[in-house]
């Protein structure tokens, strides 16, 4: 699990962790049933106060993204999928907003943006992945 913290962008660190774990789950890089690192290990890896990690895990648990199993660690929950779709759309919405804002400034209308997206996808599909 790779998480990157930026301490200077105003977003609380625990929330950065929450958002990134949600992202990793949403895009399948954390599968359901997979174990999250222990609090202390992640604290040392990210150089972040252990209480901050604990807070992030608590929020993730509350949101149903992860579940604690008694006596052991924290695991990505099975019920992750319906939420995951919501999270996926949320992530995309942010990108879409940025794209639309840019298009507006460059005087490109919505239909042209949609055409462009279709055109780009054709190109992407052609390239071997």
């Amino acid at each position: 699990m790779q998480i990157h913290i930026s301490a200077n962008d105003g977003v609380p660190i625990y929330l950065q962790i929450v958002n990134q774990v949600k992202y990793l789950v949403a895009c399948g890089r954390l599968a359901s049933g997979e174990e999250l690192p222990p609090i202390r290990a992640l604290a040392e890896q990210l150089l972040v106060n252990p209480n901050t990690i604990a807070r992030a895990y608590m929020e993730l648990e509350r949101d149903g993204i992860v579940a604690k199993r008694h006596g052991s660690g924290t695991y990505v929950s099975d019920a992750g999928s319906p939420l995951a779709r919501k999270e996926r759309m949320k992530i995309l919405s942010e990108r879409a907003d940025a794209l639309l804002a840019e298009a507006h400034h460059l005087n490109v209308d919505l239909d042209s943006v949609i055409d462009l997206l279709k055109q780009r996808r054709k190109l992407l599909n052609k390239e071997p992945s």
Partner: peptide, 30 residues
Amino acid sequence: LEAIIRTVAEEGRTVLFSSHLLEEVERVSD
């Protein structure tokens, strides 16, 4: 920073540190 985290992760130990590097302070202090 690792030493600070390890110290506090061990039950009951306490750290006081002064710094100009607010990014570090924000990461490790509560």
